[in-house]
């Protein structure tokens, strides 16, 4: 008897901790995870630290020092109203992050629910929901955003809602496909045999299995959402001045493109670097959350 138990213990692998801990370890070893994660961390730090780390007040106007090139005093120079660009960029990071997160949360919450119900709710629910999705997808993206903003009026919040609405169909489609693929899996059948209700299977059994894919998808749509919101601000339909949102800063700066390049370069580079970082981070996430990799 003792022999049997000993043998059985050997059939287990080494205790490896939770899936989450393992994914984190793999993420820290991943090269683009390190770079992208670094950028994301800096962004988050700037957003959370707030005014205390800013060398100047991002909103205070100083006409004497207007359009100063980058120097030791003003790292990124000053804009046409003499505001310190470095402070404005740091301060603007909170808007960027907030736009990315809020609009993605809106898109994911509604999109995932729609996709789950479409994939698991029977023929009619599927038909109805997917036709709504098709309608959303049939609009040119920017036109859809403009339509939502037109209905709700231009502000930072409506920009986020608009971008969220624009992102919904992608989530709905992706998760519907995943649900259809998982619906006939043996573990779902086993859950049914054990008396799990339909909703419990959808939200309790299938959803946890497709969440890694959702996290990966989100890591790619957050930067897209930020770009879209920046575009809306650029059109004057998103963040309103004097909010130092990067897209809005870009619009204000474009008149000085020939005379003071840094006014354009600062928000442009900020957007570029943070999008690049988030994309790298998303790549790394995709690698470490791949279900096949997880079981290693």
């Amino acid at each position: 008897m003792t022999d049997m138990i000993l043998e059985e213990q050997q059939t287990f692998g080494k205790p490896t901790g939770s899936n989450f801990a393992r994914a984190m370890r793999r993420l820290l070893r991943h090269r683009s995870g390190q770079v992208g994660g670094g950028v994301v961390l800096v962004l988050v730090f700037c957003a959370l630290a707030g005014e205390s780390i800013l060398p100047y007040d991002p909103l205070s106007i100083d006409p004497i020092n207007r359009l100063k090139p980058p120097s030791a005093e003003h790292f990124f120079g000053t804009d046409e109203l003499g505001r310190d660009l470095f402070s404005r960029i740091l301060y603007g990071s909170r808007y960027t992050l907030m736009i990315g997160l809020v609009s993605t949360v809106i898109a994911a919450t509604f999109g995932i629910t729609m996709g789950l119900l479409a994939g698991g709710g029977g023929k009619w629910a599927d038909m109805l929901i997917m036709r709504v999705v098709d309608v959303l997808l049939a609009f040119p993206y920017i036109l859809l955003l403009l339509a939502v903003v037109a209905i709700l009026g231009p502000s930072l919040w409506t920009a986020m809602i608009a971008v969220g609405v624009g992102g919904m169909p992608g989530y709905a489609r992706l998760i519907r496909g995943e649900v259809l693929a998982q619906k006939d899996a043996e573990y779902v059948e086993a859950m049914r045999a054990l008396g799990a209700s339909h909703l419990r299977i959808l939200f309790g059994t299938i959803l946890p299995n497709v969440l890694p894919q959702m996290v990966i998808y989100a890591s790619f749509t957050i930067p897209l959402a930020i770009l879209a919101a920046a575009a809306l601000s650029f059109l004057g339909l998103g963040a309103q001045p004097p909010i130092p949102e990067w897209g809005a800063m870009l619009v204000d700066a474009r008149t000085f493109l020939r005379t003071a390049w840094w006014v354009v370069a600062a928000p442009g580079m900020a957007i570029f670097v943070s999008i690049l970082g988030m994309n790298l981070f998303g790549n790394a996430l995709r690698d470490v959350l791949d279900p096949k990799e997880m079981s290693k």
Partner: peptide
């Protein structure tokens, strides 16, 4: 009825367990 009164086990035990729970 299912699970409580009548329960069932299947041929492929590893794929019948939810992989992420």
């Amino acid at each position: 009825l299912r699970g409580d009164r009548i329960s069932m086990i299947f041929q492929q035990p590893r794929v019948c367990l939810n992989p992420v729970i």
